[in-house]
């Protein structure tokens, strides 16, 4: 199963987070919103200018910017 960056996921694509490679405030914000390894996410939407992106995580919808999504590695579901 391929590992890709969250930025490169297509709309409606689903995958499981493998790693969140950032510390500090951004890392903490990402984790406290539930974006931790093992979590299943689905890309729901992109903003009109392609950035930010909206994700479905644990029954809720989250948004993050592309440069923040860069730190998140995802294993795509087959």
């Amino acid at each position: 199963m391929p590992l890709i960056n969250l930025r490169n996921m297509a709309i409606n694509q689903t995958g499981t987070i493998v790693a969140v490679k950032v510390s500090g405030e951004l890392g903490r914000r990402i984790r406290e919103m539930g974006l931790v390894p093992g979590t299943e996410i689905t890309v729901k939407q992109r903003a009109p200018l392609n950035d930010p992106v909206a994700l479905r995580v644990m029954g809720g919808t989250l948004t993050l910017r592309n440069n923040e999504a860069d730190f998140i590695e995802v294993e795509i579901a087959p």
């Binding site: 914000r29 990402i30 809720g60 919808t61 948004t63 993050l64 923040e68």
Partner: peptide, 9 residues
């Protein structure tokens, strides 16, 4: 500030 934010229903 990170944009990680919730879109509430």
């Amino acid at each position: 500030t990170p944009f990680v934010m919730e879109l509430p229903p």
